[in-house]
């Protein structure tokens, strides 16, 4: 763990009085895929949402601890959550392109709202992001069509392109393939492995095979705690904790 790009120290999160995440310390090396696995309700999604300060947007929600992005605490004093979210992108479970915006406008949204309006710059970034998200070939003639007119799998890649357009060093993904068919899922998995060269990915998944296939580090969550984290091949072949072993062998969850 030489030089982590993202590091959390004792992160806890609450919904009102209910504590969903309990003192999690975790770190991610640059250019890796980090998978969060665990049964439903184990706090892995909530933890993910602490990493870009989205958790605090929920009514009555609270976060403690610190999250360091390249050694800078995103919960530090005077840090604007908006600035944090421009550096840490996010893709959600359900594809959520902006309604009544074209494919082009969806990808350009982040730049436009950050004040970049020059047509040539936008066109270049939109193409680059769509190529990165392996969607360019499919939509290059449909840039003016509404984003919601694409298929589910294409919409999800559109959302990935939208997140990539602002060039974030870290990309968070909350079960990005759980609403998709196997073919779309395979496409996105392949895409993630390629994206590793440009960004560090933290992905929550319900699908253990997915974690085993694509991730470098796997973290197993249970009842809000991080039970075990380590190199993916090690976690799946030689788990240290009996609960991890029970979960990955399918005895619960």
């Amino acid at each position: 763990m030489a030089n982590p790009i993202l590091e959390t120290k004792e992160v806890s999160a609450w919904f009102g009085k209910h504590q969903a995440v309990r003192g999690i310390s975790f770190s991610a090396e640059p250019n890796t895929i980090n998978a969060m696995i665990g049964p439903s309700g184990c706090g892995k999604s909530t933890f993910l949402r602490c990493l870009n300060r989205l958790h605090e947007e929920v009514e009555g929600a609270r976060v403690e601890g610190s999250v360091l992005l390249s050694k800078e605490d995103i919960y530090g004093q005077g840090v604007d959550p908006v600035a944090v979210r421009r550096r840490i992108g996010m893709v959600f479970q359900k594809p959520n392109p902006f309604p009544s915006m074209s494919v082009f406008d969806n990808v350009a949204a982040g730049l436009r709202l950050a004040g970049i309006h020059k047509r040539s710059v936008l066109a270049e970034v939109v193409e680059r992001s769509l190529v990165q998200a392996a969607l360019w070939e499919e939509v290059k003639d449909k840039l003016k069509q509404p984003g919601t007119s694409l298929s589910g799998g294409q919409q999800q890649r559109l959302c990935i392109a939208r997140a990539l357009a602002v060039n974030p060093p870290v990309l968070l993904m909350d079960e990005p393939t759980s609403a998709l068919d196997p073919i779309s899922t395979a496409k996105i998995e392949e895409l993630l492995v390629n994206l590793k060269n440009d960004v560090t990915i933290v992905i929550v998944t319900h699908n253990m095979q997915q974690a085993a296939r694509i991730s470098d580090q796997t973290c197993f969550f249970l009842t809000g705690e991080l039970v075990e984290a380590g190199e993916t091949s090690r976690i799946f072949t030689n788990p240290q904790d009996t609960r991890t072993e029970q979960y990955i062998t399918g005895r619960f969850g």
Partner: peptide
């Protein structure tokens, strides 16, 4: 009627 995850997508993109 606008689903909440659409708002979150905007927030996650770093929009105020």
């Amino acid at each position: 009627l606008v689903p909440n995850h659409v708002r979150e997508a905007g927030l996650a993109l770093g929009l105020p």
